[in-house]
Design a protein around this nucleic acid. Structure first.
Length: 540
RNA sequence: CGGGACGUAGCGCAGUCCGGUUAGCGCACCUGCUUUGGGAGCAGGAGGUCCCCGGUUCGAAUCCGGGCGUCCCGACCA
């Protein structure tokens, strides 16, 4: 049973069956029972107020979290979402951390156009094939009265060559790089852009799959293959560090198989995370593009030996999908759980008082603590609003995933204590005001580490190595998650396994992650030789 | 694209079968009082082109025709 949560929602909950449907199900003579059934359902739908549990319905739980924590709304545009301040603050914190790491590794930010001439997209054969089916295309520049009180594109205003709303920017960027690069002295070019992209998708899942999303895309140009490959792997390392140190989300690193590769890439590397429902989520990708785009856009340079060579390329990106990954890695049935390093608010203070006199003394202490924490660089918020009562606030901040909550009431003022509640374990304790800042600084670190360890343990419990197809199928259901198995390297086998089990090869992992399991073997299905195990999973 | 359901206040719904007071209920919202250590109580209040167009009728949320939109299942996609 799914129950609606508090507050306005545009989301349609499952609807109570109509009278007609119930009459069909129960029989035409059961009119009174039909009324009773609908009455009961109606009561259940309106009286209770909870986030759907993960065990009950995982995808509904996810939607309840996103909406309950006010991260995003559905929009009037099908397939698009509205990122609310809470969700955007998370993305901003991710951006800030990543942007710093990009700068540290020598990258600069720039901005390229939203619109890509249609002909650009057609230049690289695999690239077109990969993206052509999901492009939004602009063909007109003007609206006119349609004579029926509405508007329509002015047929007179049809623009010459249609413009594609960028699904990714390789083409327009390489068209530009071709102008910028003549000599080996112009290389490398290390550019990143923060942007939105549009991919015309059928299904929507907030943050995980929407038509428009926000991301960063790095595009680099190099003089040698080796340098480009090194860059590709360097950025994969940056993503790994970000995922593990900031998001507290362990990831597997590896390279994609040919069928999962980015259209136009020579090699696609990825980090893969495991969500709580046992499904894998690609959390970031880094592509070695070889000379494919350089050739498509005739981008050459003269090397030190006065020879003309094509430029070597990389591109790499992460998107607002990471917000979805964050949710599904840590959150519980009470709501969002955020790692302190990314939490927009790390500590919330809730004052409790029964009269004006108490209000004054409680707030005085609360403000002093707020100031001390802020001075220590902690993101702290004092909620002194009288619009809601303390109990309501407790719940609200729990749903929103604030890592630490402090409650201060008259009792605490008198005893020079505060009540400290941590979101990750839901433990509460009374602690002295003295030394509070140091305690909280240390606790935030411990929470960050604890979340990572919990997620890592979860992943380890759901990573299985198997050597037979029967075991493989069993492991996908129980315990689920990542299944390490041998594969003969052919697309045919990969496709057949996908067809039969819905599992795909998430990556061919770097072998340092396969401690003790890096022996060669034989393919599950065909028995043909395999150099190493690959990671299978059902995926988002 | 095929099959099914739905469209009434910000949200969730009742009322429609069988046409007839001023279209109701819960949540949310506004005002006041009492409250406040885990989603407060009471009282008062505001909020509606009943998806749109046309028809039948003395009278349409309700019946009829057409249109639009949304959701679910399948197909497709990842």
């Amino acid at each position: 049973m799914r129950l609606p949560s508090r507050g306005p929602r545009t989301l349609k909950k499952p609807q109570i069956p109509s009278r007609v449907a119930l009459l069909d199900a129960l029989g035409r003579k059961e009119v009174s029972r039909v009324h009773a059934v609908r009455e009961i359902l109606h009561l259940l739908y309106t009286m209770a107020d909870a986030i759907t549990t993960r065990a009950d319905d995982y995808s509904q739980w996810y939607i309840d979290i996103v909406r309950g924590a006010k991260l995003a709304d559905y929009s009037p545009v099908r397939g698009c979402m509205i990122i609310r301040p809470n969700g955007y603050a998370l993305w901003e914190n991710m951006k800030a951390a990543l942007d710093g790491m990009f700068k540290e590794t020598g990258h600069e930010n720039a901005y390229f156009p939203l619109f890509v001439p249609q002909s650009f997209l057609a230049r690289e054969a695999e690239h077109v094939e990969g993206f052509a089916k999901e492009c939004a295309v602009v063909t007109h520049s003007r609206l006119i009265d349609d004579g029926e009180g509405g508007l329509k594109p002015d047929p007179e205003s049809e623009i010459g060559e249609p413009l594609v709303v960028r699904p990714t920017s390789e083409t327009i960027i390489w068209n530009t790089y071709a102008d910028w690069i003549q000599s080996w002295r112009d290389l490398p070019i290390l550019i990143n852009q923060w942007a939105n992209v549009v991919r015309w998708e059928m299904r929507t899942r907030l943050f995980l799959r929407t038509m428009e999303f926000l991301w960063q895309e790095g595009h680099t140009a190099h003089a040698t293959k080796q340098e480009a490959v090194e860059e590709t792997l360097r950025m994969l390392d940056v993503y790994t560090t970000f995922a593990e140190d900031y998001m507290a989300m362990p990831v597997l690193r590896g390279v994609k198989t040919a069928s999962e590769r980015f259209p136009g890439a020579v090699d696609t590397y990825c980090i893969e995370a495991l969500m709580q429902d046992g499904k894998a989520l690609q959390a970031g990708t880094s592509h070695f593009l070889g000379q494919n785009f350089a050739k498509a856009f005739d981008c050459t340079f003269q090397n030190e030996n006065n020879e003309l060579e094509y430029v070597w390329a990389t591109s790499w990106g992460v998107s607002t999908r990471l917000v979805g990954a964050l949710i599904m890695t840590h959150s519980d049935d009470q709501g969002l759980v955020l790692p302190p390093r990314l939490a927009p608010t790390q500590v919330v203070i809730v004052p409790i008082h029964f009269n004006d006199e108490q209000r004054a003394t409680v707030l005085e202490v609360a403000r002093r603590i707020e100031q001390e924490l802020a001075d220590a660089g902690i993101r702290v918020e004092l909620d002194a609003s009288e619009a809601q009562r303390p109990g309501w606030k407790f719940n609200e901040y729990e749903v929103q995933g604030v890592p630490i909550r402090l409650a201060i009431g008259p009792r605490d003022v008198k005893n020079e204590n505060v009540e400290l509640a941590r979101r990750d374990t839901r433990e509460k304790e009374i602690v002295p005001q003295k030394g509070l800042t140091a305690r909280i600084t240390e606790l935030l670190d411990r929470i960050q580490e604890g979340l990572y360890n919990r997620a890592l343990q979860f992943r380890q419990e759901r990573t299985t190595a198997v050597d037979s197809y029967d075991d493989f199928k069993a492991a996908l259901d129980e315990p689920g998650g990542f299944v390490l198995a041998h594969w003969d390297g052919t697309a045919e086998t990969e496709a057949r396994i996908k067809e039969e089990t819905k599992a795909t090869i998430r990556c061919i992992p770097f072998t340092d992650q396969l401690r003790g399991l890096d022996e060669p073997g034989e393919d599950l299905l065909t028995g043909k030789p395999s150099e190493q195990r690959v990671v299978f999973a059902r995926a988002y």
